[in-house]
Amino acid sequence: MFAVDNTARQGSQQFNELVPSRYALQVGEIDVLIVSDGVLPLPTATMATNVDPADLSAWLDRMYMPQDAFDWPLNVMVARSGEQIILVDAGLGGQYAGFPRAGQFPQRLKAAGIDLAAVTDIIITHMHMDHVGGLLVDDVKQRLNPDVRIHVAAAEVEFWGTPDFSQTSMPTPVPNVLRATATRFLEAYRDRLRIFHDRYEVAPGVVVRLTGGHTPGHSVVDLASGGERLTFAGDAMFLVAFDHPDWHNGFEHDPEESARVRIGLFRELARTGGLLVASHLPFPSVGRVAIEGEAFRWVPVIWDF
């Protein structure tokens, strides 16, 4: 069990940080914690692979972002519904050279008073390295309950048997690392996988559903309780997508389908007024979606202290 509380306390963390790394809120009776796993530096060219570079450059200028590389935020989520504690994605892990500011979620979870051994369920939105890599860290593997249930779409498991990178545009070393990481994840946790096909209720008010697009088995997590809603959208959208939902991201295995999924989720969230959290929106990434003409607008919540 964990408390929903964003108030800093003397001695509440066992390591020093200059910025907040977790954000707590409630969705009806469901306690929610958004935890930053850190940031991952990436070339800005991966943000839009189907447009004139000058158009991307102009957008970066307008957003006061650097032209060559940017820090990709990494967010994971923890939800408590009844007696179940559900971890949604697990970040990058600290085993990859060159990413010293990623792989932070285990110690940040501990600082929030959440024991990994208490996690009853893990939902994997998709099996890219920055979503399952954290589960391959020895300390994490040793601390997890051996009976933890790991929920992942059947289409995702099938895809990583023979993954197709033909429509992606990633830095050269990345596909091999993604492939190897997915293989290691399946080898380590296959006996704990709980495979679903289209939609599965993991806990009261906590539903994972297949969207496809980013990967064939990409899924989102919907929380619903007491008339309130929150969707953890994984990699269905990125910051640039609100202005340009049709721009393709280099990590999308089916860019056209990804755009359709993204626009559908934007429209759904604008219609319901539910909260949005996503893996790679700036921490804590809690906000809502508004529609303005042909574009969408991300409306961040005001932090509640």
Rank of each mutant, 00 (worst) to 15 (best):
M1E: 02
M1Y: 07
M1N: 06
M1T: 06
A3T: 15
A3E: 12
N6H: 13
A8R: 09
A8H: 06
R9K: 15
Q10K: 08
G11P: 01
S12P: 00
Q13T: 14
Q14V: 00
Q14S: 09
F15E: 05
N16H: 11
N16T: 13
N16A: 15
L18T: 14
L18G: 02
V19I: 10
V19D: 00
P20D: 10
P20Q: 06
P20A: 13
S21V: 12
S21I: 08
S21A: 10
R22Y: 15
Y23R: 06
Y23M: 03
Y23F: 03
A24Q: 03
A24H: 14
A24D: 12
L25C: 09
Q26C: 11
Q26N: 15
Q26S: 15
V27S: 05
G28I: 03
G28Y: 04
G28P: 01
E29V: 10
I30Y: 08
D31Y: 01
V32G: 00
V32Q: 00
I34K: 04
I34S: 00
V35Y: 03
V35P: 04
S36A: 14
D37G: 05
D37P: 05
G38R: 01
G38H: 06
V39M: 06
V39L: 01
L40H: 11
L42H: 09
P43F: 12
P43T: 10
P43S: 09
T44Y: 05
A45Q: 13
T46M: 14
T46L: 13
A48W: 03
T49C: 10
T49G: 11
T49F: 06
N50I: 03
N50C: 05
N50V: 04
D52K: 12
P53I: 09
P53L: 07
P53G: 10
A54N: 02
A54V: 13
A54H: 09
D55P: 08
D55T: 12
S57K: 12
A58K: 13
A58H: 13
W59K: 04
L60F: 03
L60G: 08
L60A: 05
L60H: 08
D61H: 04
D61A: 11
D61N: 12
R62W: 09
R62Q: 12
Y64K: 06
Y64N: 10
M65R: 15
M65A: 14
P66W: 07
Q67P: 03
Q67T: 14
A69L: 00
F70K: 07
F70Q: 01
D71K: 10
